[in-house]
């Protein structure tokens, strides 16, 4: 079955390194055209998932489909920027882009690549004749992203893309990246620790923890099913709901919950931010997993199956 509206689909995906399960029975679906934040604590499996999706490693179990086919077959449509931003140190910036053009005949977009390398103005522009070896970490990141975007990928996989950029460069680069993605309908997956930065840029979220999918879905849906409640009642009053995190608040209680029906009177209710939801789940690793319908893998008949 060819499925053009799905960028990534994992069914029971597992990856084992020796005795350790980096990924364990992961099932989720990422619709095409989304900007997805891939978050989770260190060792959650974020980088492993990106390497599998890029076709650079094979799963130990389960199935991973990318752009309707196997990662290996989709290689031409995928751009992947690893955390260490692998580049050839002895090449100049211009040479590196030329290499990108040579390696991607017929689809290379020199203008898009140059936009990233030139940045916002003369001051931030990289010297095309500078050798990669002499560039700062942030400048190398820009060259690596220029290579990735110049490829005009359908799926862009970024591992910690902007962590070594200063705030201004990060903001500019993120803006350019999102604009390019919007123009070409590119699906973007980026892992990051900087939740705040991603919250505004991403419209889809995948939270991993201990190699498992803890939460997946459109950002709006994930915040909409949670409530921040504060009230004078005890924790027992919240029992009918799924309580993600609950803390004493004076004589009462403050909690992040998934309401199952109306919340009792006396509780002040507000919709949390995406960051509130994420932090609560990170602080409570035993919170039940949540897969929004859009993030749920579909069976062949096209109906949803809960993972």
């Amino acid at each position: 079955m060819t499925d053009t509206d799905t960028a990534i689909e994992a069914r029971g995906l597992g990856k084992r390194f020796g005795r350790r399960n980096a990924l364990d029975a992961c099932s989720f679906r990422l619709p095409a055209g989304r900007i997805c934040a891939l978050v989770g604590p260190n060792g959650a499996g974020k980088s492993t998932l990106l390497t599998l999706a890029a076709g650079l490693a094979r799963p130990s179990g389960g199935e991973l489909r990318v752009l309707g086919t196997t990662p290996a077959e989709a290689r031409r449509e995928i751009a992947y920027v690893a955390q260490d931003k692998a580049l050839f140190p002895q090449l100049t910036v211009a040479d590196t882009l030329r290499l990108g053009a040579d390696l991607n005949p017929g689809r290379w977009d020199q203008e898009a690549a140059e936009r990233i390398v030139h940045g916002d103005g003369a001051e931030s522009a990289l010297d095309p004749y500078a050798k990669v070896r002499g560039l700062s970490g942030g400048q190398r990141t820009r060259v690596a992203l220029a290579l990735a975007l110049g490829k005009r990928p359908a799926l862009l996989l970024l591992d910690e893309p902007v962590s070594d950029l200063d705030p201004l460069a990060r903001h500019q680069l993120m803006g350019t990246l999102l604009a390019e993605a919007a123009e070409h309908g590119t699906t973007v997956v980026m892992s990051s620790h900087i939740l705040g930065e991603l919250a505004g840029a991403c419209d889809f979220l995948l939270l991993l923890g201990g190699g498992r999918v803890r939460m997946a879905g459109p950002a709006d849906d994930l915040t909409a099913v949670h409530r921040l409640v504060t009230g004078p009642g005890g924790a027992a009053e919240l029992a009918p709901h799924t309580v993600i995190e609950s803390r004493p608040h004076g004589r009462g209680q403050s909690a992040l919950i998934r309401p199952e029906g109306p919340v009792g009177p006396g509780w002040e209710c507000e919709e949390p931010s995406l960051e509130d939801v994420l932090l609560a789940h990170l602080r409570n690793p035993s919170a039940p997993a949540l897969l929004a319908p859009e993030a749920t893998v579909r069976d062949l008949a096209g109906t949803g199956v809960q993972a």
Partner: peptide, 15 residues
């Protein structure tokens, strides 16, 4: 345009 806003603010295009 949406592209201009996205470039200037780094918010999601759908937003």
């Amino acid at each position: 345009t949406a592209r201009e806003v996205v470039e200037a603010t780094a918010v999601n295009p759908n937003t």
